[in-house]
Design a protein around this nucleic acid. Structure first.
Length: 125
DNA sequence: CGCATGACGAGCA
DNA sequence: CTGCTCGCCATGC
């Protein structure tokens, strides 16, 4: 059958991407954090860090996503110091024993490192 | 059409 | 550490 190359094609539409992203984010274990780029990579969207940020800013009402475990690759929270969002994120992180100083987390100590099983199985579902 | 803007990131000076 | 450039791409003007 013929499938017009426009509008369709490319197996992933926006919805699929959002789903993949939220799936990855919700796999980050409590007490660990991941960067936007890391989430993008694990979601099969290399180089799409900004897309991850966009998704986390458009979480459907009611859906539960561990958005607070995602921050910049350099360890800084993605929000301005003392902003409402930064304060809330800091509180949520400290509740799971993730240390936040000066709007920043030490990635060396808290960055999530998925084990092989997670990479081969859990991330595929 | 170009141009600016994002919950971003890596490289370089 | 700071600042600048370029890559990324959806959106809006």
């Amino acid at each position: 059958m013929k499938m017009s190359s426009d509008s369709v094609s490319e197996g992933k539409n926006a919805t699929d991407k959002h789903g993949a992203i939220w799936h990855v984010v919700n796999m980050i274990p409590p007490g660990s954090v991941a960067s936007y780029g890391q989430v993008a990579d694990l979601a099969g969207l290399p180089g799409r860090a900004r897309l991850v940020g966009k998704c986390l800013g458009n979480i459907p009402d009611g859906m539960q996503v561990a958005w607070h475990r995602v921050l910049r690759s350099n360890g800084y929270l993605a929000f301005p110091v003392n902003s409402e969002q930064a304060l809330r994120q800091t509180a949520l992180l400290q509740e799971e024993n993730v240390a936040v100083f000066n709007n920043k987390v030490k990635m060396r100590d808290f960055q999530w490192e998925p084990d092989l099983y997670t990479l081969l199985y859990d991330l595929e579902k």
